[in-house]
Design a binder for these strands. Structure first.
Lengths: 150, 150
DNA sequence: ATCCACACGTGATTC
DNA sequence: TGAATCACGTGTGGA
């Protein structure tokens, strides 16, 4: 038979339409000189079944992916993968933006209340603590004004 | 090129009469009526080429997906899809958590300062405004204590 | 040497 | 009518 190399060629050689020398040149590639068992009739059944199962599994994943990705333009497999990748990149970018924004907000909110003043509310009253010269204290002004009035 | 023989594609030899001897329940595939044109000898080449291109495109998407998904357990296609879906769900959940957290923080920070008290800092002093009975005012205690002391 | 995953060609189907 | 996909069976190479 002539065609043992032109079947698929796997990963090494994709397609060679230029090959004319098909006399009996043996392939120097692997030592796969084994003749296919043309007698075994029930052997490929297992293979066929396994392949079918694998295909079904992959299609199941595709179906699941169709469920989780919004805005599916077409039900085509390739387009679905493209949309999924785009959506995934969008999510990643969004998350990064939110994280940095959160970090910025926290830093600006944590940096401010610490150094100068501290306000703490309790059940029926509140406590205000400040670090400043006493004559510039707001309560001092109030007290002084009240004292002068009395 | 000796491409066409029964070794590559086993479909041609004993494939589709219409009923394989299957004793199992088999869903009726709607077989399209119509004889295939067995004379067209130039269109299979185009067909093969188109299919090859489609396969290559899909594989390209797979390769791209491998790049954007972290923690790829195996380079297997099905597992890759599974990991991608898991990762996508994780991202979605993370985004939702962050959004709700953000909303909660904003609401709790906006809801509180409005009704009871208002603290506002200026250049060298601050303003405190409160809504409460005067005898329970913290400043009232201070003033009263000071007045008694004086 | 058995299983697994892949690429390939091809018939069938859909737009 | 063709072009684009899908599903199928098979050959093959790697653990």
């Amino acid at each position: 038979m002539s065609g043992n190399f032109s079947s698929t060629a796997g990963v090494s050689s994709s397609e060679r339409p230029k090959d004319k020398s098909l006399a009996q040149i043996d392939e120097r590639k692997p030592r796969k000189r084994g003749r296919k068992p043309a007698n075994g009739r029930e052997e490929p059944l297992n293979h066929v079944e396994a392949e079918r199962q694998s295909r079904e599994k992959l299609n199941q994943w595709f179906y699941t992916l169709r469920a989780v990705v919004p805005n599916i333009s077409k039900m085509d497999k390739a387009s679905l993968l493209g949309d999924a990748i785009t959506y995934l990149n969008d999510l990643q970018m969004k998350i990064r933006v939110m994280e940095t924004e959160k970090q910025m907000g926290n830093s600006s909110q944590m940096q401010f209340p610490v150094p100068e003043i501290d306000f703490q509310e309790r059940h029926e009253d509140a406590v205000v603590r400040m670090n400043c010269p006493l004559d510039s204290h707001p309560v001092s002004d109030v007290i002084r004004t009240l004292k002068e009035t009395l």
